[in-house]
């Protein structure tokens, strides 16, 4: 039923002696003693490993046999044209969609067992911004997963939320109603909520979509800090110009996986043509010239 029932026993069986590296991440992580990201102590697991994921909406394929391999500590961009299945892939990884075939593992185990290692930053348009809730309240929601049923967040949860808000430069806005924020500020609140989750893997759906320059800088710094801390980030990304600058790895997707790997190897003009090529005659045509150009 609850996240605790699912996650608890799986980690309880892990060998504490196997815990190594990233000791602090483990300590303020799920608090099981072992490295939560590496329950079996093998160390070589992929942070996110989706294999042969196939998914169809009403028999129309959205993802065909897609693999996603995200090494631990990578900042990975998922790139592709509209309708390529980027968000679908992310939602499948999160267990929000059930694939017709294939599966997803987070550090070698099913998502349901590793839920507490994953934080999700949804698209801004996906929530009700007129909801009667304040900035601090939204960020505190990030602690709900660790609370279990019935228990309410208390002072320590609030402190953690405030710390996360400070991390994204939003500490002065904690009492604001969320609709009174700019788009970039809303995005930073979502990021803070994910930070509170203190996860190992951060899945973000278009974090840079429609944000101001300040927010873009904040997000980039945040991504680097997360990476320095050994965390993994997977983000759906639209702006081909900034892929090289912001990310270490990339997966090019268009219903099927076109290419993946470190940005230097996979983010090539040839691969981009393969990814966007089929669509250039269609919706991508207007934007193709400046977008498909490989960044210098």
């Amino acid at each position: 039923m609850s996240a605790r029932a699912d996650g608890g026993p799986a980690r309880a069986g892990a060998d504490p002696a196997a815990s190594r590296a990233n000791a602090d991440a483990a300590a303020n992580g799920a608090g099981t003693g072992a490295d939560p990201a590496d329950p079996d102590g093998r160390g070589e697991l992929l942070a996110v490993h989706a294999t042969d994921v196939t998914l169809a909406y009403q028999q129309r394929p959205v993802l065909w046999d897609v693999d996603l391999e995200v090494p631990r500590g990578a900042l990975m961009a998922i790139v592709g044209p509209n309708g390529a299945g980027k968000t679908t892939l992310l939602r499948t990884v999160l267990g929000l969609l059930r694939p017709a075939a294939g599966g997803v593992r987070i550090f070698g185990r099913p998502y349901a067992e590793q839920r507490r290692l994953v934080a999700y930053v949804p698209q801004r348009s996906s929530v009700d911004w007129d909801f009667p809730t304040t900035v601090l309240d939204v960020v505190t929601m990030g602690t709900y997963g660790g609370l279990g049923w019935v228990r309410r967040p208390g002072a320590s949860e609030r402190r953690r939320a405030q710390a996360a808000l400070a991390q994204v430069g939003m500490q002065d806005y904690e009492a604001r109603q969320i609709s009174q924020l700019s788009g970039g500020q809303q995005q930073r609140v979502f990021l803070a909520r994910a930070l509170v989750q203190d996860a190992q893997v951060y899945l973000m759906d278009e974090p840079f979509q429609g944000v101001d320059a300040t927010t873009e800088r904040t997000i980039v710094e945040l991504l680097r800090a997360l990476r320095a801390d050994g965390r993994t980030v997977v983000a759906v990304h639209h702006d081909l110009q900034t892929v090289r600058e912001y990310f270490t790895h990339v997966t090019l997707l268009n219903v099927r996986r076109i290419a993946d790997g470190p940005v230097a190897e996979a983010f090539t003009e040839a691969n981009l043509r393969l990814t966007y090529g089929g669509r250039m005659a269609g919706i991508g045509a207007a934007r193709a010239p400046d977008h498909a150009e490989p960044p210098a």
Partner: peptide, 17 residues
């Protein structure tokens, strides 16, 4: 009906991949 067609396609694509 579509389930069979779809399953067959799934099989072919998986093999092709």
């Amino acid at each position: 009906r579509q389930r069979w067609t779809f399953a067959r396609q799934l099989l072919l694509i998986h093999l092709a991949t």
